[in-house]
Design a protein around this nucleic acid. Structure first.
Lengths: 121, 121, 121, 121
DNA sequence: GTGGTCTAGACCACT
DNA sequence: GTGGTCTAGACCACG
């Protein structure tokens, strides 16, 4: 688990950006199954946002059943591996889909995209 | 030049999404250099948003010097090829950069990404 | 009489700016009492604005009795010296008043203003 | 900081006039570096204009980097003294330049202008 | 007809 | 409570 101050994109709700950040950490393994998330106040301090914003992100994550909250103990990542695998697949798919759409909208074909990515490698 | 009703992403200002839509059309050639954009009211009708929202998108595009406005005549894409080339490069770079960042945040390496894209091809 | 293409201030109606231009020429003597103004179409050509805009400026000038229109002959500056003298006084006063107000709003005293102007001399 | 109901000039956009009013207050020291501006709704009430008009003025000021906005907290004058000094210089210069131009267009020489101002003193 | 400004009023994101 | 976005609708400047 590692969270650092980042710059938020002003054109997207901050709580959404925080949710994405946490999901990514779960997906890449920086945050483990069953691990306790930082307390609302701690994460608010680290990210320099209001505690309510973290609350909202945590609440949404719980609604998506990615985390669960134990009263008085904090928020924990689900231990259900199946849920995490689905999350992983869905999130990667969605990122890839919207990337391909953006690039195609700009007139690039799949082959162009692959060439560009190879140059970056 | 072709504009159609689309669904907007609720988590991003509509006027920004309209700016991106127009930029993409310029980049992929669907809208040519010097071409007149639809009138504010026409595009508002097509996209089913308020005319003020289009107005705002056009004004921002003008501020970025991608278009220029002649009072009473309409908004026109710049004829400055240099500006468009810069736009093209910056927009593609930014989409690719943030895609790579998203994927790396989820634990994928460049090679993984390329494999995934090849499957899509 | 001399009119040249100028850049208009986008935040003020063009017809008002044209009226001011003509008034100034009358005041400084570049346009004489009784002199014929350029035709609407000519001035529109010189200033690269629509003929309607010139029409409007001429009409307002006539309403202020600074010019008068003879059907089929064009617009002429009044020959009434008294009117011109009043115009001169009012216009200069108004320019000076608003200049002093602007400068005082920015915290300059009359003495400061005079010093600044002397430096320009 | 002091804002009062004023009469707006009908020939200039109100949001521009509000921007100028705020800039003048910063320049003359009535509004200090880092000071919080009135909330959008408060100033709208004071000046008897719509909140959107204030919003627009504030947004333009932010774009000119004269103020910065913290979501949910308000708009604040920049604390960057350099920015303010440049603003000061540019605004005074522009007022003086256009005044001199106006007067010269009416046939006054610098010496005439200075005499007129001395009479006002 | 076309862009520019403004109002009134609504709802959302965030502190 | 504060800024940000959006709608609906009006009126003006200009071609």
């Amino acid at each position: 688990m590692k969270y650092n101050l980042v710059e938020f994109d002003n054109n997207k709700p901050v709580y959404i950006q925080i949710m994405e950040m946490i999901k990514k950490q779960i997906i890449n393994g920086d945050t483990s199954l069953g691990e306790r998330l930082p307390s609302v106040r701690d994460l608010a301090g680290i990210l320099e946002v209001n505690a309510n914003t973290i609350q909202r992100a945590y609440k949404e994550l719980e609604r998506e059943e990615i985390t669960l909250t134990k009263r008085g103990m904090g928020s924990f990542v689900t231990s259900n591996l199946e849920v995490i695998n689905i999350l992983k697949k869905q999130m990667a798919d969605s990122v890839v889909d919207s990337f391909i759409k953006d690039m195609e909208d700009m007139g690039f074909e799949i082959e162009d995209i692959i060439s560009i990515l190879k140059e970056r490698g």
